[in-house]
Amino acid sequence: MNILHTWIASAALAIVTVAPIPVFADGDPDAGERVFRRCISCHAIGPDAGNKVGPTLNEIFGRVAGTVEGFRYSRALVAAGQEGLVWDDANMDAFITRPARLVPGTRMSFSGLRKAEDRANLIAFLHTLTPETAMGTAHLVPGDPELPDEIMALVGDVAYGQYLASSCVTCHQVGNTESNIPSIIGWPAPAMVTVLHAYKNKNRDNDVMQQQTGTLSNEEIAALAAYFETLE
């Protein structure tokens, strides 16, 4: 484990000690929009937003730290990204608690949000800026089906998904290694659900994938998506 990971782990631990329940999981995006007013002088958001004093925060979650195109980051933040910092709720919560504590040397001269509730709301709001990331539309191709709400709304059983996934990982490697067959870990569940149904419905070609998905029920597809989303 490298130093940054240790850092992130201990920062996360500190948060857990203070607030045993990770409150960022259920923030109020509307309240978060009001919190965001404190950020807006440096960070632009929304359609066509560019970089200002700070980088745009569109689609921040799931992005490697320090990688918005055209923005000049501190060496510290770029290094953090290279060492594996990928923005998610937990590390974003740690960062906006006090940026310089998570990433010493960051140029972000913001002292931080002390109230856990403010941070949770802000994170909830930032999620609304990332519809494409959240949906994983990067994984979709033209011709993929638009699925009815009742399929998209199914909440999968992770434990069942883990068992079902044992069939997938005969070919799709767990980890980020891709050898002619794509990595499928960490995909947002809606994207995984859509792609699996695309094979099942034969919107997508590939005999093996059509065969594998052809035997899966809607619930099983949801379970697989729920499981793969948990992998990093």
Binding site: S179, N180, I181
Partner: peptide
């Protein structure tokens, strides 16, 4: 695809 499978199953 078969090469990908080989690497996948051996992993």
């Amino acid at each position: 695809e078969s090469i990908g499978w080989y690497d996948g199953i051996t992993a």
